[in-house]
Design a protein around this nucleic acid. Structure first.
Length: 270
DNA sequence: TTCCAGGCGTATC
DNA sequence: GATACGCATGGA
């Protein structure tokens, strides 16, 4: 990643990146596209306005951002240290994955906050993306920022009714309680290998294999997590009845993102 | 009106 | 362990 300062903005060169593919592909729910195709969103309570500077040479503008903020926050959030070109070369050994990562060339895995990702994907179950965004938007609006687990300590399923999250409110409460009582800890999940981490998360009511995998991939940066939802089930049934190809080893989650985006487009549902 | 949405808990076998 | 079914809410 190269960067330079331009006025109050930072211009960055980040290959293998496209705004809508990464910010509007269902891995994060707080980015809103603007009329000029730029995006406004946030990492925790730190807002960002990002736009494409020149797609041909993969340059982007982080508006009103300092060098310190770029290197201290957004470098990690956009996973700038990872070489997605190399990921795509590895995965392209498989024909379907080659098509998928050619199509969805600009997806990067966002390194989101652990609690935000966990709570977002609890909300996501049996739900659609616009409504997930609506629920999270009401949560952020109510608290004036994305609330921490301790911010939420006194909430109940009833007090969260304003979210209109339906049956998922009680699942959020169970996650809040278990984290606040330290029956489960963010650090413990971070330190655990995939299978054990998934098991820990699934102790929370409303967290099954899929929600746990999404939290681990997007919120704990476990690239070997492989969330299987209705779309990925279709991919597996159609292209991989005998399991994933060996080239996905260790980066199953990256493969999943390319495949998810690809199959949704195939069905005309992007 | 009915169906469906980045699933999961529960009951039942 | 596999398989049905209900679940809050809102848009199509």
């Amino acid at each position: 990643m190269d960067y330079r300062k331009k006025g109050s903005d930072m211009i960055i060169k980040l290959p293998d990146f496209e705004l809508s593919q990464t910010l509007d592909c269902g891995q994060a729910f707080r980015w809103e596209i603007q009329a000029d195709r730029s995006f406004i969103g946030a990492y925790l309570n730190r807002p960002l306005h990002i736009s494409t500077y020149n797609l041909k040479d993969s340059t982007f503008i982080l508006h009103d951002t300092t060098e310190d903020e770029l290197l201290g926050v957004w470098y990690d959030y956009f996973d700038m240290s990872a070489d997605y070109g190399e990921f795509k070369r590895i995965l392209s050994e498989d024909e379907t994955l080659h098509k998928a990562c050619t199509y969805a060339y600009g997806i990067r895995i966002l390194r989101q906050d652990s609690w935000e990702a966990l709570s977002s994907f609890i909300i996501s179950q049996n739900n659609n993306i616009p409504r997930i965004k609506g629920i999270i938007g009401r949560l952020v609006e109510h608290y004036g920022r994305y609330p921490s687990v301790s911010d939420l300590a006194d909430e109940t399923a009833e007090s969260l009714a304003f979210l209109r999250a339906g049956f998922r409110a009680k699942y959020l409460i169970d996650a809040i309680d278990k984290l606040n009582r330290q029956e489960i800890t963010i650090d413990g999940i971070k330190a655990a290998p995939l299978e054990e981490a998934q098991k820990k998360l699934m102790a929370i009511k409303g967290v099954g294999p899929k929600v746990a995998s999404c939290a681990l991939l997007f919120g704990f940066y476990k690239l070997d997590a492989f969330p299987v939802d209705v779309w990925v089930k279709r991919v597996l049934a159609e292209y991989y009845p005998n399991g994933l190809p060996s080239c996905t080893k260790g980066i199953e989650g990256v493969a999943q993102q390319y495949l998810f985006h690809y199959i949704r487009n195939q069905y005309g549902k992007v």
